[in-house]
């Protein structure tokens, strides 16, 4: 029994230590952001890696999610004769919840895992040590650009997801199911608030971008520098990021809406 307790305690102490290390890492990361002012090209490169490369999957998913939402809401609302409200519901669901959340999950799977694997491999092949020995701070040159790029790219992708999703909703709701196009857009227009809904959705995206990038980069930099270590770090990135997104989404929704 005492053996079990000991292991249990040691396990959680280990977790706590990692959390502490991750927090210190974050301070370091934020402190290194200022150096990007002198090197915007590094940021552009990472925006390409995390933003542009995730764009196609986000747009396609957004389109389908919008279409499915439209179909489901239509089928329910038609019973009440309120089918012209489809637009409102599709838009609110996308802008407030699914846009940032699904984009966050896709981003963690596509860009976050890639970041972890890349940094992990840089560690395993001594590139990070190499930079340090060249008197180059990896926080400034490797971590900070990736962090900022993820932070910026996720809300942008979420906005594109929502916009495309609304179009997908239009496609199914109006073109296929025959909701009046005018009603679809005008109902949406009068019920969705820019400051309350769209901006809060963007804030969610920013929070998720911050957390996912932080987790991805920390897991990469903290991994055991072997192929096994990199692969388990990549898995952890996806798992922790997804959990963090879903948990934070609940908190943010409770605070915002």
């Amino acid at each position: 029994m005492s053996n079990f307790l000991q292991k249990f305690g040691a396990y959680w102490l280990g977790k706590l230590e990692r959390l502490g290390r991750a927090t210190l890492f974050l301070f370091h990361l934020v402190a290194a952001l200022a150096s990007l002012v002198k090197r915007p090209s590094l940021l552009v490169k990472q925006l390409h890696a995390s933003g542009v490369m995730t764009l196609s999957i986000v747009l396609v998913s957004g389109l389908f999610v919008g279409m499915v939402l439209s179909l489901q809401f239509y089928n329910t609302l038609i019973d009440f004769g309120q089918e012209e409200r489809v637009g409102t519901l599709v838009a609110l669901t996308l802008v407030r919840e699914l846009g940032p959340v699904v984009t966050g999950l896709l981003f963690a799977g596509r860009a976050g895992s890639a970041m972890t694997a890349e940094i992990g491999l840089m560690k395993a092949t001594e590139q990070l040590s190499g930079l340090e020995m060249m008197a180059v701070d990896p926080f400034k040159r490797v971590f900070a650009p990736r962090f900022l790029a993820g932070f910026i790219a996720l809300p942008m992708l979420a906005a594109m997801f929502s916009a495309v999703g609304v179009m997908g909703g239009h496609l199914v709701g109006v073109e296929v199911l025959g909701v009046d196009a005018n009603a679809y857009w005008s109902q949406m227009h009068s019920s969705v608030s820019f400051t309350h809904d769209v901006c809060n959705g963007l804030v969610k995206g920013l929070v998720f971008g911050f957390v996912v990038s932080w987790i991805s980069i920390f897991e990469g930099a903290d991994c055991i520098p072997t192929s096994e270590g990199v692969s388990s770090a990549t898995t952890r990135t996806v798992v922790y990021s997804s959990l963090a997104i879903l948990g934070l989404d609940f908190l943010l929704t409770a605070v915002m809406f």
Binding site: A91, A159, H189
Partner: peptide, 15 residues
């Protein structure tokens, strides 16, 4: 594309 999406969200989707 982001600006375009924001335009859609600001002008068409919301008010």
């Amino acid at each position: 594309l982001f600006l375009l999406a924001m335009f859609v969200l600001a002008m068409k989707v919301s008010n």
